[in-house]
């Protein structure tokens, strides 16, 4: 059994509450959905025991009904990429920071806060990064019209 398939079995076993729908979508690509309350525990586990040493990207998506954070985590040693979707309610958009687990998440989280307005709890330096400091809204939200 390949590492991808093992991972899709191990993850729900370890976090029966936190992980849903782990599946292999392509060779070297695994997808799963995580609960935001368990995100830190899952990420710590992924880094320490599964060898995911690199966070490639954190994309925030506005689905109008709710927000979603998409974590692309990469393991260089097993050469796979795990896509972790985390749903966030729009009215209370917080999620725990992973920037102390992977320092590479520092700027991604600042950017997600800046453009999408997601609050990362315990982020050491959650300021706007691309837009001016006194900007008043989060422009990638769908309620801000781009046309």
């Amino acid at each position: 059994m390949s590492f991808e398939e093992q991972l899709t079995q191990r993850l729900p076993e370890r976090f029966p509450e936190g992980i849903e729908g782990a599946e292999v979508v392509q060779p070297r690509r695994v997808e799963a959905t995580a609960k935001r309350e368990d995100l830190r525990a899952i990420c710590t586990y992924l880094r320490d025991e599964e060898g995911f040493e690199h966070v490639s990207c954190i994309s925030a998506v506005d689905w109008v009904t709710h927000l979603e954070n998409v974590y692309h985590l990469v393991s260089y040693q097993h050469n796979i990429m795990l896509q972790l979707n985390v749903q966030i309610p729009s009215e209370d958009p917080w999620v725990d920071t992973v920037s102390d687990i992977w320092k590479g998440a520092l700027y991604h989280e600042r950017e997600a806060y800046d453009l999408m307005g997601i609050q990362f709890r315990d982020h050491p330096d959650l300021r706007r990064i691309l837009l001016p400091k006194d900007f008043v809204f989060h422009p990638l939200r769908k309620d801000y019209a781009g046309e």
């Binding site: 490639s56 506005d62 590479g104 950017e111």
Partner: peptide, 16 residues
Amino acid sequence: PYRVKIRSPIFVTLSA
């Protein structure tokens, strides 16, 4: 496209 997210390498490298 509904959403396009770009990961730029140097953006992240600057944090180091």
